[in-house]
């Protein structure tokens, strides 16, 4: 337990007192009633006595300096090891105070999940590093936001600074909450995803399907053809021996796994029970009324296939950190081509 020693107010309108001399040295044992320091104010001096037994520690005011009334100038601690490490000179403390009081942002920052781009400063990082990471322009400025937005954001542990970084106009209001949620989720675990959509005529594909079904005895579904085509297209951009495709289809969107479906005859493609890495996910909505479905995406590449009158709508949704836009677009182009002119596959 540490007791604070403060600069006392000795006069009516006194703002500072002059510390004339310390009468004990840092680390000295003191007893209650021992004179600790000599203080001068309005031409009179007096001695300040210890109010507790212990050791004098954390002396933070120099002799012959003016110290604001109420300022802590030292501590009396029960044992020296327990003395707090932090040591500030009284003269410097004013500057530090400003830093501590100003950025509410700093305290807000601590509450939010550490984002990938902004790793939490470790203890070994100096304060300089910390400033570099957070950017002085964001930490030192006040954020203008309505009280309602502040309370809503606080309830969801969201940091308003994301709106500022994204260039939204202040003051932020409750209507900005949805943007803040999005920005924060991108900042955190869920990366921003990109997507592209193409529309492909069904006609050749349907003819192709009916012809191979009349040739073979089995009933080959569009699912098997799609899985095979996607697998073949993926091979163009993916350097992997094994292609694993998680395929969701049917009204219930149940999922199955296909391993290298492009390496099999269409009638021989079977779902795999092997424990293989998933290269891409396919959400086949052709058996449903939906044309789009978002969320629940776990792989870097995700295809959504849906019926769009006489066409298939194919959406590719990719993780830009892993797949370049160039590769993504050539992947989508390649797949669209295969569906548009399936017979070319056989040549």
């Amino acid at each position: 337990m540490a007791h604070e020693i403060i600069m006392p107010a000795l006069g009516m309108a006194q703002e500072t007192g002059r510390l004339v001399a310390w009468l004990k040295n840092e680390g000295d044992a003191v007893k209650k009633g021992d004179p600790l320091m000599e203080v001068e104010t309005d031409k009179s001096t007096m001695e300040v006595e210890a109010q507790h037994d212990g050791f004098l520690a954390n002396v933070s005011a120099f002799e012959n300096t003016d110290v604001p009334v109420g300022e802590v100038v030292a501590l009396i601690v029960e044992n020296l090891e327990a003395a707090p490490q932090e040591k500030k000179r009284a003269s410097e403390k004013n500057n530090n105070d400003n830093e501590q009081n100003l950025p509410n942002e700093t305290s807000i920052k601590k509450e939010t999940k550490p984002a990938e781009d902004f790793p939490a400063p470790s203890a070994s990082n100096g304060s300089l590093d910390e400033q570099k990471i957070e950017g002085p322009s964001f930490t030192k400025e006040k954020i203008l936001a309505s009280p309602k937005l502040r309370s809503l954001a606080a309830a969801e542990n969201l940091n308003l600074i994301e709106l500022k970084k994204a260039g939204f106009t202040e003051p932020f209001k409750a209507a900005d909450l949805s943007s803040l949620r999005q920005l924060s989720s991108h900042q955190g675990k869920m990366p921003l995803r990109n997507n592209a959509t193409s529309l492909v005529s069904k006609s050749s594909f349907l003819i192709f399907m009916s012809e191979i079904n009349s040739a073979s005895e089995k009933n080959i579904s569009s699912e098997l053809i799609f899985a095979s085509f996607i697998s073949a297209s993926l091979r163009v951009i993916i350097n992997s021996e094994i292609i694993g495709i998680k395929y969701k289809s049917g009204e219930e969107l149940n999922s199955v796994l296909y391993q290298d479906p492009d390496k099999f005859q269409l009638e021989n493609i079977r779902p795999s029970n092997n424990d293989i890495a998933i290269t891409a996910e396919v959400c086949d909505l052709t058996a449903t009324d939906f044309i789009q479905l978002s969320g629940d995406i776990n792989s870097d590449i995700n295809f959504t296939i849906s019926d769009f009158s006489e066409q298939y709508m194919i959406t590719l949704d990719w993780q830009p950190n892993k797949i370049s836009q160039q590769n993504a677009l050539s992947l989508l182009r390649d797949l669209s081509m295969r569906i548009k002119s399936p017979l070319k596959q056989l040549l």
Binding site: S146, P147, K148, S151, K173
Partner: peptide, 11 residues
């Protein structure tokens, strides 16, 4: 209003 509904105010 500012005293008692502050955290609900959006302007």
């Amino acid at each position: 209003i500012s005293e008692k509904a502050f955290y609900y105010l959006d302007a």
